[in-house]
Computed example of a mutant assay.
Amino acid sequence: MTPNILMTRIDNRLVHGQVGVTWANTLAANLVIVANDDVATDDVQQQLMKMVLPDTIGIRFFTIERTSQIIDKAAPHQKIFIVVKTPQDVLRLLENGVQLEQVNIGNMHYKEGKKQVAPTVSVDDADIEVFKKIKEFNVDLFVQGIPGEKKQDIFNLI
């Protein structure tokens, strides 16, 4: 059985108001999976993210490896929205057998050595190489901050 993954989003901030309310509701998700090795063991960050979501949406925190191991066990009624911190997290999911159709690049903070390619997305050469590897899995990679914005193919921006 293929899990019902609605979308995967790269967001340095993981779950915050824009992700927890706007995106989850627009997608009609009933489960948010935060796939991140650090947050999987950080109770404080988990509690803060749980506070953002309405009671009608469940949230789980797993390492990348654990997500890969259990995603195929998802129940058919689960409408899953996966949130990761980096493009590298997405690539690891794919390499571990998780089937993703589309990845929303929502927020990648600017820092020294990165170039801004969209208002909330900054990348370096390593990120671009990872995007190319993700594309080899036939994944649609697009930048879209909020649901009402037009999707932009990342390869048209870099």
Rank of each mutant, 00 (worst) to 15 (best):
V84W: 10
I134L: 03
G113N: 04
A29V: 03
N4H: 13
V83P: 09
N4I: 01
V52Q: 05
D38I: 13
G17P: 08
G145P: 12
V44F: 14
L141K: 03
I5P: 06
W23L: 08
Q78R: 13
V39R: 11
D43Q: 14
K115P: 00
D43F: 05
N36Y: 07
I158S: 04
Q152S: 11
W23M: 10
V139R: 02
V39F: 04
R9E: 03
H77T: 07
D55A: 15
V34Y: 02
H77E: 14
I33W: 10
R92D: 06
D37H: 07
D125L: 11
V39G: 08
F137P: 08
D38V: 14
P119E: 11
S68Q: 09
G148W: 02
Q88P: 00
V15E: 04
D125N: 14
L141T: 02
K115S: 07
K114N: 06
Q18W: 11
T67H: 12
I70R: 07
N96T: 02
K151D: 02
S122L: 01
M49Y: 07
A35H: 08
A35Y: 05
F155Y: 01
M108I: 12
P54S: 13
Q69S: 14
F62S: 09
I33G: 05
T2R: 15
T67C: 15
I59H: 12
E95G: 04
I71N: 06
Q47E: 14
V117D: 00
G17C: 10
G113V: 05
E95F: 01
P76D: 07
L157R: 04
L14Y: 10
V52T: 14
L157N: 02
D140Q: 14
V15F: 03
P3I: 01
F155H: 00
L6D: 06
I71Y: 09
K150H: 09
K73S: 14
G113D: 03
I134V: 13
R92T: 10
V32M: 12
V21Y: 09
I154W: 03
I57K: 10
Q116V: 12
Q69W: 01
F142Q: 07
V123W: 01
I10D: 05
E129M: 09
M49L: 09
F137M: 03
V15C: 05
V98P: 13
P54F: 00
V103C: 06
E129T: 08
Q152Y: 03
I128V: 15
K133S: 11
I105Q: 01
R66W: 04
V130G: 02
I134P: 04
I154L: 06
G20L: 06
V21A: 07
W23T: 04
V19F: 11
F155K: 00
D38W: 03
K79V: 01
L93V: 09
T86S: 12
I64G: 05
V83S: 04
K73I: 00
M7C: 13
I33F: 05
E101M: 09
R60K: 15
M1R: 12
G148A: 10
T120G: 00
L14K: 12
A35Q: 09
M7D: 13
H109S: 10
A29H: 05
V117H: 01
I82W: 01
K135M: 04
E112V: 11
K79G: 02
R13C: 08
I154Y: 04
T2Y: 13
I158W: 11
E95A: 05
K73G: 13
V103D: 01
I57T: 14
